[in-house]
Simulated assay, not measured.
Amino acid sequence: MNSIDDIMIFKEKHIKISDSEIKDLLQNQMKLIDHIKNKQNQDVSDDKVKITDLTSKVNSSKEILQSEKQTLEYKNNVLSKHLNHITELKGEKNKFLDENQQLELQRNKLKTCKRNLKDQALLDQGRRKFALYKEFTKIHWDYEKLEESIAGNVSDKKKYIHHFSYSKEENTKDLSNLLWQEIYQSVAYKDHKDTYDNENVVQN
Rank of each mutant, 00 (worst) to 15 (best):
3 S>L: 12
4 I>E: 10
5 D>V: 13
6 D>M: 12
6 D>W: 12
9 I>H: 04
13 K>Q: 10
14 H>F: 10
15 I>L: 14
15 I>K: 00
18 S>K: 03
19 D>K: 15
21 E>C: 01
21 E>M: 01
27 Q>A: 11
30 M>W: 05
31 K>G: 08
37 K>A: 12
45 S>C: 05
45 S>P: 00
46 D>F: 09
50 K>A: 11
52 T>R: 10
55 T>C: 07
58 V>G: 02
59 N>L: 10
67 S>V: 10
70 Q>V: 13
71 T>R: 12
72 L>Y: 13
72 L>H: 12
75 K>R: 12
76 N>Y: 06
79 L>P: 01
81 K>M: 05
82 H>W: 07
82 H>N: 14
84 N>A: 08
86 I>E: 04
91 G>K: 13
92 E>C: 05
97 L>G: 02
103 L>Q: 09
106 Q>N: 14
109 K>T: 10
111 K>M: 11
112 T>S: 13
114 K>I: 10
119 D>G: 01
119 D>H: 04
121 A>V: 03
126 G>V: 05
128 R>Q: 10
129 K>C: 08
129 K>P: 00
130 F>D: 09
133 Y>E: 08
140 H>E: 11
146 L>R: 14
147 E>H: 11
148 E>W: 02
150 I>D: 02
151 A>G: 01
156 D>W: 00
157 K>Q: 09
162 H>V: 04
163 H>S: 08
165 S>G: 03
166 Y>F: 15
166 Y>L: 02
167 S>C: 01
170 E>W: 05
176 S>N: 12
177 N>Q: 14
177 N>A: 14
183 I>W: 02
187 V>L: 15
187 V>K: 07
190 K>T: 13
197 D>M: 07
200 N>G: 03
200 N>I: 11
204 N>V: 01
